[in-house]
Amino acid sequence: MMRFASLGQAALVALVVVYLLAVYLLPSQVWMGFTINALAMSIVALSWNITGGFGGMASFGHAAMYGTGAYASAVLQVQFGVNAWVAFAAGIAAGALMGAFIGALAFRYGVKGSYFALVTLAFAEVLRICASAFEITGAGRGLQLTLQPGVATLQFNNDRVLTYTLLLGIVALVMALTAWLKYSRFGAYLVAVRENEDAARALGIDTYRVKVTAMAISGAFGGLAGAVYLQLWLFIDSSVVYGVSISVTALIGPIIGGAGTVWGPLVGTLGLHLLGEGAKTALHGAPGLNFVLYALVLIAALRFLPQGLMGLAARIGVLGRKGGDDA
């Protein structure tokens, strides 16, 4: 399944894999805790990548799906005492439904480009305000799961290595699904829609259906990311899970790493987190500084690395004639 366009890409991916495995061996728990955060965020980056990367529908509101997944799972567990596994699955489903709903509405009226970004941002903001207003979503207080470590409650907070391993598994699964999508008919249709929607329609592609399906899949991944966040931290509130910072993190990782590639979102998210943490440590933890840095990196990447790190790596040590984003 995995084919690399160049030695550079293979090396970049190898570096990431070596790092992820080395975390097990590093003596300091700080690295593992930090990487757990980065992996959790890379799920929402992978979610954005389906629509924004492959489908060319750049959303600025992936928090809408992320937060919906987190809230659906939290409301079921806290207000209705539903089993954590069932609630977790419901979170994924809720994310998918929210994605499909936003997509169905936006694409029904032909919204695209920056208008689509604005519509998704508006959805995320409306949901954020709703979540902070209604009692069932914990209003301004947020929702807190009862601490009850165990398999039945999906809480592994007392075992960092297990948490890390599970997250690695989830990220690997989402990436495997992404790779499978990429090499399926649906993936080809999605790229065709991104490159030229009229030509795609002429060739028999129901572009509306392709786009809404992409939003549903992306939403499922986003909901998964939100549900994972909830199980990690056991607490959510509207400004965290529906916040703009989630939407920004969702898109910045893939853009830096390489949108529309399988590895790009993980590479970008990890790289950014490393950079952000490094800067925080170097500058004694000025709050919010990592976002300033992200912005600078984003500007530089858009100017100098239009295909992200994976695109840059693809140009190093090209294998064969077929250049591009094959990984």
Partner: peptide, 30 residues
Amino acid sequence: VRTFQIVQPFAGLTVQENIAVGAYLRHESR
């Protein structure tokens, strides 16, 4: 099926992948 006066290839894809987008209509497997 129609073609376009202003040719509209899927720029990010190879020639073969471009043609395959059409072929997917009757062949589900890649």
